[in-house]
Design a protein around this nucleic acid. Structure first.
Lengths: 192, 192
DNA sequence: TCTAGGAATAGACAACCGTCCAAGTACCCT
DNA sequence: AGGGTACTTGGACGGTTGTCTATTCCTAGA
């Protein structure tokens, strides 16, 4: 993907708001070109193909969420508090950008085709997670068998419940869902 | 999807063993037809389209895993023990059938196109999960905020770590992965 | 002002994919 | 045997994708 001019990026991002509801990014290049009012040839001039274009969109969404997640990671309180904040922020991101939530699995599945995206996801979401986890472990607040696995497990859990909610309810009530899933993951399933 | 003759089902299932390694079901109908030695038009006689064909394959895999998971759910020990058994069985299923693991997200994403599959998944995996969870809650062994959400979260966590391991390692060491993720979910992240 | 060269675009193209129709075949019931 | 029904299949169709070439546009530098 070439470096693209500001106005072209804007047009593309504006266009994404007019994609058919609930279609994720299942839109033909032709359609994107039509909606964004950009010649198809120009899209192929800047993007190597459709995957590249989808990656552009997902990267944009990921960029938008990064600040919120990193802010949560840097918030006040114990490591456990911050962890809960980050988890809630992730659910919030999915609530705000359902497309990102729904497309993420495909992107992960074909990770080799989405190197830049995977890097962005790691930077935006997984690293904050890992950092808070490591901090909490060092402080003795959290007990972790394997930080990497724990981070992935948390991410998977948050993603699944978000996706399920999005599909069945059409939208996410962040407070409600976070209230149900965050303490469950933090405290575990076992009664004390 | 029509009821399909035994020999045709066999041919299709045999063919799936020869799909390109690590391609999930990203195989063209043309390819499937060629490998299974069935005319392309015949496939479209029995299946409404590619989704339908993938659903057939996933249903087969799901069927194969059902027994193992239900056995785990009916095993000896406390609810927590059984829950751990079921979790391990799920990871084992993913280890045995990586394609199922990798394709599941797409199937969930377009749940409306995969009604039968979703029903099968619910029957094979989610119901055993929920039953053990409900039992454990009734016995006071487990503390659950919301059974449905908890089941989804567990499933999401197991799926994500399995997928990540499959992609990065190429295969899953069930004991090792289960040892890392199961106690973490059961006990939670917080130190006691 | 002129020009060279990169950026942008139109349009044609082949390849492939999923879909579907219409014709052929086999089989069963009466 | 006859006719109806389900099965099977060849082949055509429209749509999308990615590529390529040729033309136009734009702009910096001589």
């Amino acid at each position: 993907m070439k470096i693209l001019p500001e106005d072209l990026a804007m047009k593309l991002l504006d266009a994404s708001h007019e994609f058919p509801e609930g279609s994720g990014f299942d839109v033909s290049i032709e359609e994107v070109a039509r909606i964004a009012d950009i010649p198809r040839a120009t899209l192929y001039y800047y993007f190597s193909g459709k995957d590249d274009l989808v990656e552009f969109y997902l990267n944009d969404l990921m960029d938008r969420t990064r600040a919120a997640i990193q802010k949560a990671a840097a918030s006040e309180g114990t490591s456990a508090d911050r962890l809960a904040q980050v988890m809630t922020a992730v659910i919030g991101s999915f609530a705000e950008y359902p497309k990102m939530c729904l497309e993420l699995p495909s992107a992960i599945k074909s990770g080799q085709d989405h190197v830049a995206l995977m890097a962005n996801m790691d930077r935006s979401v997984m690293t904050p997670f890992r950092e808070v986890l490591i901090e909490g472990k060092a402080a003795g607040e959290l007990t972790l068998i394997d930080v990497e696995v724990a981070a992935d497990a948390i991410m998977g859990a948050l993603h699944m419940v978000s996706m399920k909610t999005l599909i069945t309810e059409g939208a996410i009530d962040v407070e409600e869902l976070a209230g149900a899933v965050v303490p469950q993951l933090v405290n575990g399933l076992l009664s004390r």
